[in-house]
Simulated scan of single mutants.
Amino acid sequence: MATVLIVDDHAVVRGGVRQFLAGTDDLKITAEAATGAEAVDLVKGGEWSLVLLDIALPDLSGLEVLKRIKRLRPDLPVLIFSMFSEDEFAIPSLEAGASGYLNKDSPPSQILGAIRTVVDGARYISPTLAEKLLAGVAPAGRKLAHEALSPRETEVLLMLSKGTTLTRIGDSLHLSVKTVSTYRSRILEKLGVQSNAELTRYVIENRLG
């Protein structure tokens, strides 16, 4: 049986996936982490077939956790499992060493297929993203404000929306407080909001976190 470490700060998500996988005879969640630091510590001391990793964590960004896991265990498959649009984060995640990117809104059959694909040693991208990559085109339709953010700005946005201080964001991303403050100013301008409260409301309304 393949063992899974799930990293997500929402207990309801961890519980839901655990219950979902309990209905299979080849996959089982054997450990959980609510923060990036917990995940890294667990990886240091345990063995899993797969890490199921959220992008938006309260202490470290998911991409930073991914990089640390790959430094510790280069052969350990990591599947990013996030509410955030794959158009923003799938490619940076794959480039950082992820074995795949999966949206939390995906149908159960797709979630199961993605996990099994990665456990088997292959890479996974959704059919939708695969079509876009093959076509070499950006997603059609009206652009949302957050789509103008860079991957780094998006990381900062998600951490700000969780109430993380500029100092902690800087520590997590290895940036100075001044640089993080600059990112915050750019984000507020691009999203057309004036405060962290409005920024958080934007993240909730657009289901980014």
Results as ranks from 00 to 15, higher is better:
Val4Gln: 05
Ile6Gln: 07
His10Pro: 02
Arg14Thr: 08
Gly15Ser: 07
Val17Arg: 06
Val17Asn: 00
Arg18Gln: 13
Gln19Trp: 07
Phe20Ser: 01
Leu21Val: 09
Gly23Thr: 13
Leu27Cys: 09
Leu27Asp: 05
Ile29His: 04
Ile29Asn: 05
Thr30Trp: 02
Ala31Met: 14
Ala34Tyr: 03
Gly36Asn: 00
Lys44Val: 12
Lys44Tyr: 09
Leu50Pro: 01
Leu53Lys: 03
Leu53Met: 12
Ile55Gln: 06
Ile55Thr: 06
Leu60Val: 08
Ser61Trp: 03
Gly62Ser: 04
Leu66Met: 10
Lys70Cys: 12
Leu72Ser: 12
Met83Ser: 14
Glu86Phe: 11
Ser93Val: 06
Ser93Tyr: 04
Leu94Asp: 12
Ser99Gly: 15
Ser99Asn: 15
Leu102Phe: 05
Asn103Cys: 06
Gln110Tyr: 00
Leu112Cys: 01
Gly113Arg: 06
Thr117Glu: 10
Thr117Ala: 09
Asp120Val: 05
Ile125His: 05
Thr128Pro: 04
Leu129Arg: 09
Ala130Asn: 11
Ala130Pro: 00
Glu131Ile: 14
Lys132Ile: 15
Ala135Met: 13
Ala135Asp: 14
Ala135Cys: 07
Ala138Leu: 11
Ala138Val: 05
Ala138Pro: 03
Ala140Tyr: 06
Ala140Ile: 02
Arg142Ile: 07
His146Cys: 01
Glu147Pro: 11
Arg152Cys: 03
Val156Leu: 08
Val156Met: 09
Leu160Phe: 09
Leu160Gly: 03
Leu160Pro: 00
Lys162Gly: 10
Thr167Ile: 12
Ile169Cys: 10
Ile169Ala: 10
Asp171Pro: 01
Asp171Met: 10
Leu175Glu: 13
Val177Tyr: 00
Arg186Leu: 13
Lys190Arg: 15
Leu191Cys: 08
Val193Lys: 04
Ser195Lys: 09
Asn196Asp: 15
Arg201Phe: 02
Val203Trp: 05
Val203Gln: 01
Gly209Ala: 11
